[in-house]
Amino acid sequence: MSPVIETDRLILRPVAVGDYEDLCALLADPGFFRHIFPQALNAEEAWFRLLRDIGHWQVMGYGNWTIRTRDDGRYVGSVGLLNYHRIVEPAFDAPEIGWGLSPVFQGKGMAFEAAAAVVAWAEQHLKADRLVCMISPDNAPSLALAGRLGFAPYADTTYKGDAVILLERLSHEGLGNVAGH
């Protein structure tokens, strides 16, 4: 069970220490963090996130993948399967999927390509019959992407004081028109 995933344009590898500089730049980019954090994360906070992501793989056997382009290795962002024990109602009872791409790569289908590959990986390797995700109601592109991936809303709630939509995807939904998956 190799945690490296390759798609037509992308290589997904578990987050590693070598991703730190790229992660710092991403977490400071307003085009990235505006729907996720109230403000940019500094280098210390980026380091803690990196350590959290590396540890997640060690403990859970899954986690965040760094997304890089196949042709030249440029840092695209991350996509992952998560178990963060979030304090949210209703509580998550399935692996959570999350994604985030650098604005340079948004709108090019790369988030869909990476997330679809991770959904397929989860169904094959984790035997996950359900995945969940949490998206800000103001994040129309991520809501549209979740819909393309087969996610449907099941609850409106708050997380850390902000409105969020909880969505779920059942494995019998299939990946429909996802080429190569």
Rank of each mutant, 00 (worst) to 15 (best):
residue 15 V to K: 01
residue 149 L to Q: 04
residue 4 V to G: 06
residue 169 R to N: 15
residue 77 G to H: 07
residue 107 G to F: 11
residue 103 P to R: 08
residue 17 V to S: 09
residue 111 A to L: 08
residue 168 E to W: 11
residue 117 A to Q: 07
residue 98 G to N: 11
residue 150 G to C: 12
residue 76 V to Y: 04
residue 173 E to H: 12
residue 35 H to L: 10
residue 39 Q to D: 15
residue 31 G to T: 03
residue 165 I to L: 09
residue 63 G to N: 06
residue 58 Q to A: 13
residue 74 R to Q: 11
residue 62 Y to G: 06
residue 110 M to V: 03
residue 59 V to I: 14
residue 63 G to M: 01
residue 74 R to S: 12
residue 94 A to H: 01
residue 75 Y to E: 05
residue 14 P to E: 06
residue 57 W to Q: 02
residue 101 L to F: 03
residue 161 G to Q: 06
residue 141 P to W: 02
residue 110 M to W: 10
residue 53 D to Y: 12
residue 38 P to V: 13
residue 73 G to I: 01
residue 153 P to K: 05
residue 66 T to L: 02
residue 96 E to H: 00
residue 91 A to Y: 00
residue 92 F to G: 00
residue 125 H to T: 13
residue 119 V to A: 04
residue 35 H to M: 14
residue 122 A to Q: 07
residue 86 R to I: 03
residue 87 I to Q: 12
residue 2 S to K: 00
residue 163 A to I: 04
residue 135 I to A: 13
residue 111 A to E: 06
residue 91 A to L: 00
residue 179 A to F: 11
residue 7 T to P: 13
residue 89 E to T: 09
residue 133 C to P: 03
residue 114 A to Q: 08
residue 37 F to Q: 15
residue 33 F to E: 14
residue 38 P to R: 12
residue 56 H to Q: 15
residue 69 T to G: 12
residue 118 V to K: 04
residue 154 Y to A: 07
residue 168 E to G: 03
residue 74 R to G: 13
residue 179 A to Q: 12
residue 104 V to W: 07
residue 177 N to T: 14
residue 123 E to M: 09
residue 122 A to N: 08
residue 41 L to V: 12
residue 4 V to K: 14
residue 156 D to I: 03
residue 35 H to C: 14
residue 101 L to E: 04
residue 141 P to V: 02
residue 35 H to V: 05
residue 68 R to G: 02
residue 159 Y to I: 08
residue 104 V to I: 07
residue 140 A to K: 11
residue 83 N to D: 14
residue 76 V to Q: 09
residue 87 I to C: 04
residue 65 W to A: 05
residue 138 D to K: 04
residue 159 Y to D: 14
residue 59 V to P: 06
residue 79 V to C: 15
residue 79 V to F: 08
residue 26 L to T: 10
residue 1 M to E: 06
residue 27 L to K: 15
residue 135 I to D: 09
residue 160 K to C: 06
residue 172 H to K: 06
residue 53 D to I: 01
residue 26 L to E: 11
residue 111 A to F: 03
residue 1 M to P: 07
residue 109 G to N: 08
residue 151 F to R: 05
residue 68 R to P: 06
residue 80 G to W: 07
residue 170 L to S: 15
residue 15 V to E: 00
residue 171 S to L: 05
residue 129 D to L: 02
residue 180 G to Y: 03
residue 73 G to K: 03
residue 116 A to G: 03
residue 100 G to M: 12
residue 9 R to T: 01
residue 173 E to F: 08
residue 50 L to Y: 04
residue 151 F to M: 11
residue 36 I to V: 15
residue 11 I to P: 00
residue 11 I to V: 09
residue 159 Y to S: 08
residue 179 A to R: 15
residue 15 V to P: 12
residue 28 A to D: 14
residue 22 D to F: 02
residue 89 E to V: 04
residue 45 E to R: 13
residue 166 L to A: 01
residue 137 P to V: 03
residue 3 P to S: 05
residue 87 I to F: 02
residue 129 D to I: 01
residue 179 A to E: 09
residue 172 H to F: 05
residue 55 G to L: 02
residue 13 R to I: 00
residue 114 A to V: 04
residue 159 Y to E: 13
residue 160 K to G: 01
residue 160 K to W: 00
residue 16 A to I: 00
residue 17 V to Q: 14
residue 27 L to W: 05
residue 5 I to D: 04
residue 53 D to H: 15
residue 158 T to W: 01
residue 2 S to P: 01
residue 107 G to A: 11
